[in-house]
Design a binder for these strands. Structure first.
Length: 359
DNA sequence: TCTGGGGTCCTAGGACCC
DNA sequence: TCTGGGGTCCTAGGACCC
């Protein structure tokens, strides 16, 4: 049997994408701290920072922090709402450029992508040259910079793209992967968030090197399947493929009220509105659904979901609205104020695909 | 630190079927 | 009606990603 060629994978991450696009569209804000996210309302706004540029990051304004806090940290920044459709349009153009360079291509959100370029280059030297070409091409066509990680798998490539930002390029060959990963914090690993990081830290595991030296059996015992995965990742092992085809599993809409409310007619009207929005997307993308999930978040952030699966597939608006309101009944209390309400449709069935199959 | 909105995947218990 | 084991589907909650 022919030996399988070692893969060469790129991870491409657009630099502070939302604010970068805004800066490109509005030259007058270039060089100023820019924050894209919820309306700060002079420090009383709800919601969080979606993206901030590097000038704003100097003040501690980074993704995910409450917008009110961002305002306190940097009141002089340019605050902009999230212009999602613009970013989607630019994203699509960028993805088209990137796709042209790859054997296999996988989009990751609006501003990241994995490329399998194994057949396009003969070694890491050529891969580095190709990555440079891609960066130049993206900048030439879009006036936007990106950071690229080149590695033997998705894991190393992803960590690589984050290693030197913005406008960076990091190449890590298999034989150097261990040395590259060992000193990094465990949080850099994919799927290690705040909770897992804390658990690992209390076990005395701070760096990826610590994790690699830990007893694999104990990790499996404590974290189940994820523990084995953690151990393999710490050793730079990741056999996962660059997935070309992505199938949508759910679609959802949710909204945080400007003010917490126990007004049931407002809540039910909101369910109607969210349903209409969902219904539009559902029919536009030719899906039927079977399962509806209602999400409620009370003012104290306590969050509940309630699900109902129907015995048939449907795309009727009234099915979404009726089920949504039915599921909400248990949560409507005159003395409990609600912060957020959301609806999710899952168990999707694509009628488009079905048509193709029967042709 | 008073915490958005759009997703995916995993776990664990229970129902139900053979 | 004491009652095994495997498989699948459903539900609620949670961790994580961008």
């Amino acid at each position: 049997m022919a030996k399988k060629r070692k893969r060469i994978i790129f991870h491409i991450d657009m630099d502070h994408f939302f604010t970068a696009v805004e800066e490109r569209e509005r030259p007058e804000i270039k060089g100023k701290p820019v924050v894209v996210g919820a309306n700060p309302k002079e420090g009383t706004g709800r919601g969080v920072v979606s993206t901030s540029n590097y000038e704003a990051r100097k003040y501690g304004v980074k993704s995910g922090i409450p917008i009110a806090r961002a305002w306190r940290l940097c009141p002089n920044a340019v605050y902009l709402g999230v212009n999602y459709s613009l970013y989607q349009k630019v994203s699509a153009q960028i993805m088209t450029i990137l796709q042209g360079y790859a054997d296999k291509f996988e989009r990751w959100g609006l501003d990241e992508a994995f490329l399998d370029v194994t057949s396009k280059v003969k070694d890491f030297k050529e891969a580095e040259k190709l990555a440079c070409d891609i960066k130049k091409d993206v900048y030439k066509q879009q006036r936007l910079t990106c950071s690229i990680g080149v590695g033997p798998n998705k894991l190393v490539a992803k960590i690589g793209s984050d290693f030197n930002k913005p406008d960076g390029l990091t190449v890590v060959q298999s034989e150097d992967a261990k040395q590259f990963l060992d000193p990094l914090g465990v949080r850099k690993l994919l799927w290690v968030g705040r909770k897992t990081e804390n658990r690992l830290n209390t076990m005395g595991i701070k760096t990826i090197g610590d994790l690699a030296n830990y007893d694999a059996t104990v990790l499996a015992e404590k974290f189940g399947v994820a523990g084995t995965q953690l151990y393999l990742m710490a050793h730079g092992i990741d056999d996962s493929d660059v997935h070309e085809h992505w199938e949508r599993k759910s679609m959802s809409r949710e909204i945080t009220f400007e003010e917490d409310t126990s007004d049931s007619s407002l809540i039910l009207d909101t369910i109607d509105a969210l349903s209409e929005d969902l219904h539009q997307e559902l029919t536009a993308s030719n899906f039927l659904f079977k399962t509806t999930t209602l999400k409620i978040r009370y003012e104290n952030f306590e969050t509940h979901t309630h699900t109902k699966t129907m015995s048939f597939f449907t795309d009727r608006l009234k099915d979404i609205q009726k089920t949504g309101k039915e599921l909400a009944q248990n949560y409507l209390h005159p003395n409990r104020r609600i912060r957020l309400i959301g609806i999710k449709l899952s168990n999707l069935f694509s009628t488009e695909k079905q048509t193709r199959l029967t042709c």
